[in-house]
Nucleic acid binder design. Structure first.
Lengths: 340, 340
DNA sequence: CTGAAAGCGCTAACAA
DNA sequence: TTGTTAGCGCTTTCAG
């Protein structure tokens, strides 16, 4: 079994040119090649079934056409759609994308940052768990942040306007007659992100002159388990029926799980209590009652992140851009109108 | 701005050894190095912050520590969990995984196969849209198939036992008193996969001596849109109430969407009609009524696929293995017991 | 427009 | 146990 190695030299031999010419044809560098030579080379390439060795090419020009995308968890529908959008935008540019999951763990995030530094990747798109992106900045990595970090101007960012989104939800509840609105903050993730939503809540309640009831503030993990526990916490509030009429959740999974657990406990969501979510994951439309929530434009966000990365790679010294997408209200059936 | 290039020569210089010794330390080849030299090298590495250039290493030994995972759609929860499991198993081995989406398109699958052939990847895990895996076999690619292809013994495979899973669902419906059971087959995807489920259906109906009613066989895309259309198709069957008591769906998304559309049309799933799904995606437990379905062990499947790939890469000539996972019945609330 | 030649950083004989 | 040396396949000056 002979193994006739297939390199540009062989291609050149068949095409009757030197390997330099072959290289000029296969690289996009635009070195000038005669029409005739080019055709001969392309013919030889397809006849031989040649494909360029990316290691050798990468070794020369240190371009890998590989991007690293780090998200909390790809099995989470919010993130999997962002991943999908990034891939869809990057692949036509010849890029492949490696996906990493942090599980909201700082340690795991660090290990991906370390992986990045092997030089294997041209760029990084990351939802950073920490507020500390010095590592990224110092290393001079072409990177795009996904998530809100409005105080950071030194790095390309795409995110959603958390404060605006939360306010939108609160205003909708308020307009529906709700005054006793509970809020759920996250146990994990960036403190800053967390406080945005919470700040919106306190600002709103204050602006409307509503009582600040510490019993209306809950903490839960943004997950199905979190929703179950949250249901218990709510029902455990003494006289909750008279004190809580609506709940603003940190994300849809939590909201949906909350709804189901409440129903199982005999409290009908969308009737006895109103629930509003955040994200508008695809399944939110398929629950019962269908979830009223705030939509975040995941596809656009992913696409924009990919585009910013392409620009950054193309010109590492350009001024960073910051794109904050507003949330939009999606009215379904989990919020009831109540009379005061 | 001087750019002090950082290669093993520099590391060796600081450690007082040659670059060969450094290479022996950083590669896992296990060439013998004295304790002292090793320590010196490691110290130099961390002092310099050196990371091995993967291009150069790959160029030498044609190992990329990169795997390509091709699935229909990563935004689909069934697949995103498989992706996650593969990543979790491969990353500790030093692998990064690139994810590709075919959207069930043969053309897209081909383009990923072409991408693979750039030599950039060590292995491939793929849910092939086509039945034609000759391309993979011919190219001698270290590959693992995800999906049922029991007739193929020449390639490592992990899948679920579709026939068994469908029969399990049918038996459960039968035991609950259902006789007028409709089946939904897929519009897309492998014909073979499709026919497994359908074969199970016809076999079952025949074994139970139930009438073969062509009106009980529906076709739908395995998606939320498919579920909406399916609901319309079912309700359009003249006198459907007396002819259809239960529906066996091809996957959960379809089933959930069917349930919701039916309800919106005034037909209460889990009461007026029974629905059984397939997959047990996480959200199936959170719908209303909670979906009775057949669970496929996604995490185990992904893990096993990753392990098979590792073995295959380690020994390309080993005998292929075939792992078919049985589905298990998850009883929730979407199937009612009926009396005859 | 084309060819010759010099490496990119690393690994794996081969010698010592 | 260690160092020397010869490439892996490609890109890119530099001549011609």
């Amino acid at each position: 079994m002979k193994k006739p190695k297939l390199d540009i030299y062989e291609v050149g031999r068949l095409a009757g040119v030197s390997k330099s010419t072959v290289s000029r044809v296969i690289s996009d560098t635009g070195g000038s090649v005669s029409r005739k030579a080019k055709d001969a080379v392309n013919a030889a390439i397809s006849e031989l079934g040649y494909t360029r060795n990316t290691f050798a090419a990468g070794l020369r020009n240190s371009k890998s056409y590989l991007a690293l995308l780090v998200v909390p968890d790809i099995a989470n529908p919010f993130w999997s759609e962002i991943v999908r959008a990034v891939q869809d935008r990057l692949e036509p540019e010849g890029y492949s994308v490696v996906v990493g999951n942090t599980d909201w763990s700082e340690e795991r995030e660090l290990s991906y940052l370390r992986l990045f530094r092997t030089g294997r990747f041209d760029g990084l798109i990351i939802n950073s768990v920490t507020d500390d992106i010095d590592l990224i900045l110092e290393a001079g990595i072409p990177a795009v942040l996904v998530g809100e970090r409005s105080e950071l101007t030194q790095i390309d960012t795409v995110g959603t306007a958390t404060y605006q989104a939360a306010t939108l939800a609160l205003q909708y509840l308020y307009d529906a007659g709700h005054r006793r609105i509970a809020v759920v903050t996250s146990e994990t993730g960036s403190e800053r992100f967390l406080s945005r939503r919470f700040t919106a809540y306190t600002d709103f309640m204050e602006a409307k002159g509503l009582a600040k009831d510490p019993d209306l503030v809950f903490t839960a993990h943004l997950s199905a388990e979190g929703g179950e526990r949250l249901a218990g916490d709510i029902l455990a509030v003494p006289g909750w029926k008279d004190r809580i009429s609506a709940v603003l959740c940190g994300n849809d999974i939590l909201a949906i799980s909350l709804q189901n657990t409440l129903r199982a406990r005999g409290v009908e969501p969308g009737r006895d209590i109103s629930v509003i979510g955040m994200d508008d994951i695809p399944i939110a439309a398929l629950t019962w009652p269908a979830l009223t929530t705030i939509r975040k434009p995941r596809a656009e966000m992913g696409k924009k992140a990919a585009e910013l990365l392409m620009k950054r790679i193309g010109d590492p010294s350009r001024t960073p851009e910051k794109h904050l997408y507003p949330g939009t209200l999606v009215i379904r059936d989990s919020v009831v109108e109540i009379r005061n």
